[in-house]
């Protein structure tokens, strides 16, 4: 068995594993109960699946120019997928799409209530804002 054949086999394994993980991410998207759980599916198996596909491509192509591009794709995917998931989760949070009955504990609700109370208080007595609380940062 030559080196080429070994590399090709490894590439094939990586590609298939990556495709299966992406499939699992797709299934999870359909089956999970609410937005937040779905974002887990979009953030993790999908990223690893893509990394495996990239690795498979790199093993198959074996040229410097292609590999650097693949490295960049992987880097940016790692950097941006969590941010995208964060933004979606943040936009979704105060809405009814979230199955609160499935949450064991929700420590963000208290903070949101405080932010709202702060905002209401600030609107009523604008002069008493002198002591900014720890939630005084402007709500985005």
């Amino acid at each position: 068995m030559t080196v080429d054949a070994v590399l090709d086999t490894a590439a094939g394994v990586c590609l298939i594993a990556g495709a299966l993980l992406s499939l699992a991410a797709g299934i999870a998207l359909v089956r999970f109960p609410d937005v937040l759980s779905r974002m887990h599916a979009a953030a993790k198996p999908q990223v690893l699946g893509l990394l495996l596909v990239l690795l498979g491509c790199a093993l198959r192509l074996r040229t410097g120019v292609d590999i650097t591009t693949l490295v960049l794709v992987g880097m940016f995917q790692l950097a941006t997928a969590p941010v995208a998931a964060h933004m979606v989760g943040r936009a979704a949070y105060p809405h009814d799409d979230i199955r609160r009955d499935l949450l064991l504990t929700d420590e963000l609700a208290g903070r949101l209530d405080r932010v709202r109370a702060n905002r209401a208080g600030a609107a009523e007595t604008p002069s008493s804002v002198g002591a900014p609380g720890r939630d005084a940062q402007p709500p985005a």
Partner: peptide, 8 residues
């Protein structure tokens, strides 16, 4: 999954 970050 990160939902919110409080920088303060």
């Amino acid at each position: 999954l990160i939902l919110e970050a409080d920088r303060g």
